[in-house]
């Protein structure tokens, strides 16, 4: 569906930040892009969104290059960014924010565009579990987790095939994080979305992605099924990443009350 093929990238006059990066995004298989800061994750997101062009190699949508196909790309792939505080325009009401892709992609076709927009915004807000009244409020009236739901509503309103999320839950506390992971998992099924997610948090990738690509200094060092890559890492860098995840302490001596399983 979406594919990076032999992608290289360097910022003007700078050293290469991505070197020969290749991987496919397969419909229905969530993909996690993991690596440390400076590994090239966010640059890769810019390339997959068509916001920058590879210096060599190609990003392909349905097997074809992106040049001249910006609109097809935008319809198919919608982004969600890390920081819900800065990615939502504070001066616009939620209905206007969520409707933006519908307007900019010219997807409102009925005679009464205003009514059509309101109907589709209400629908998108319902998908992400926000009340209908949210439409008439401003971003600052919402908590961080709710703002991220608004950003997701904005991304899914135009019915994309891929949700490209750059650290979508990193800024959130653990309880909110899990509820958003549940939401993304549900949207995958109900909306037929494929989630491509950049994260430095391996527990999040393990929760949501069937496929994992590990980047180190702009190169793919390991990729494949998440169960194999993170469950039995082959490359030393992946092993270091997995070993670095802080673990919860073991049970106190002979007292193992299990907390309620939240499913």
């Amino acid at each position: 569906m979406l594919e990076a093929r032999g992608v290289h990238f360097a910022y003007r006059g700078g050293p290469e930040v991505l070197t020969d990066v290749s991987f496919p995004v397969v419909a229905g298989r969530g993909l996690g892009l993991v690596g440390e800061s400076g590994a090239g994750k966010s640059t890769l997101v810019r390339l997959l969104l068509g916001l920058a062009r590879p210096t060599a190699g190609q990003v392909l949508l349905d097997g074809e290059g992106l040049r001249g196909r910006e609109r097809a790309l935008r319809r198919a792939v919608q982004p969600v960014f890390q920081d819900p505080y800065s990615s939502l325009d504070p001066r616009q009401r939620v209905d206007r924010i969520v409707a933006e892709p519908l307007r900019s992609l010219g997807l409102l076709t009925s005679r009464d565009r205003r009514a059509e927009s309101a109907r589709r915004v209400a629908e998108a807000l319902r998908w992400v579990g926000l009340p209908e009244e949210a439409a008439s409020r401003y971003p600052h009236e919402f908590s961080g987790g709710q703002r991220q739901r608004i950003a997701i509503a904005r991304a899914v309103v135009c019915g994309p095939r891929v949700l490209l999320a750059d650290e979508p839950v990193s800024a959130l506390d653990v309880v909110t994080k899990v509820s958003l992971i549940d939401l993304l998992a549900e949207l995958r099924h109900s909306r037929g979305l494929t989630v491509v997610m950049v994260s430095h948090d391996l527990t999040v990738v393990a929760s949501l992605c069937e496929e994992t690509v590990v980047l180190e200094k702009g190169r793919v060092v390991e990729r494949g099924a998440t169960a194999a890559v993170l469950g039995a890492p082959g490359h030393p860098h992946t092993r270091r990443l997995v070993a670095g995840v802080p673990r919860l302490p073991g049970p106190p001596a002979q007292r193992t009350a299990e907390p309620p399983d939240s499913g």
Binding site: V174, V175, A206, V245
Partner: peptide, 15 residues
């Protein structure tokens, strides 16, 4: 909080 943290860690450890 503990249930959420355990779920996330469980997802990784389960692999």
């Amino acid at each position: 909080v503990v249930a959420a943290a355990r779920r996330l860690h469980g997802a990784l450890d389960g692999l």
